[in-house]
């Protein structure tokens, strides 16, 4: 961004009331061509008026064309848009072709002043799901729960801990159901005075 852009306003790109959704409305409402009948700098504009202007007016019935001859002044075009914005282009020493090009340029503008875009993307419909808010993707039971709530708070590990794995194995083997009977067997083993780990390995 150079010093020329210091006074350039910044903003976001936008359209006029979704122009073009139903039908396109050309935003250029009126174009004034100010020129001198005698000076050389208006020569191109005068040639344009003589040859192309009527075609332009026929092709754009929504645009009013005003011609304003002013003696011994510089020549310029003034475009007025539907949103009330006015735009000027000085046309001194323009050729006929240049005048035609700049007129097309004025015709195709939306009427908003040229701004520095803060973001290079734009959409009128940000998301079909709606705008994100802090409650998006939150489980709905949080609305009726009372805090503190242990299940929501506690850390959930990916794998069960060693103790939990041991309990799972014990449950699969059926250790937990027969715990009372096991206790009795162990007591009997103790009376026999056999070291228990050896006893277990012998059983396997």
């Amino acid at each position: 961004m150079s010093h020329r852009h210091l006074f350039l306003q910044s903003g976001f790109i936008k359209t006029n009331l979704q122009n073009g959704v139903g039908r396109f409305v050309n935003q250029l409402q009126r174009i004034n061509l100010i020129f001198c009948k005698s000076s050389g700098s208006s020569k191109g504009v005068r040639e344009f008026i003589e040859t192309d202007l009527v075609d332009f007016a026929r092709a754009n019935p929504g645009t009013v064309v005003y011609l304003k001859p002013r003696r011994h002044r510089g020549t310029y075009m003034c475009a007025e848009y539907l949103n009330g914005h006015k735009d000027y282009i000085t046309c001194n020493n323009f050729t006929r072709d240049e005048v035609r090009k700049w007129l097309e340029y004025m015709k195709n503008k939306s009427g908003f002043p040229i701004i520095r875009l803060r973001k290079h993307w734009h959409t009128d419909h940000p998301s079909i799901q709606g705008i994100w808010n802090p409650f998006t993707h939150k489980p709905s039971y949080l609305n009726v729960t009372t805090f503190p709530e242990k299940e929501r708070s506690e850390y959930q590990p990916l794998m069960p801990s060693a103790t939990e794995q041991l309990l799972q194995i014990a449950e699969q083997v059926g250790f937990l159901d027969n715990s009372n009977t096991n206790n009795t067997t162990t007591t009997t083993r103790n009376t026999e005075n056999i070291p228990p780990p050896l006893n277990m390995s012998d059983e396997k």
């Binding site: 409650f135 939150k138 949080l142 805090f147 503190p148 709530e149 929501r152 708070s153 506690e154 850390y155 959930q156 590990p157 801990s161």
Partner: peptide, 21 residues
């Protein structure tokens, strides 16, 4: 774990703990 009632009313979610208790 004693929080003033006016703060408790604002709370809407938990931050997950970082390690098991």
């Amino acid at each position: 774990d004693k929080i003033p009632q006016e703060l408790m009313e604002n709370i809407s979610d938990h931050m997950k703990q970082l390690r098991p208790v």
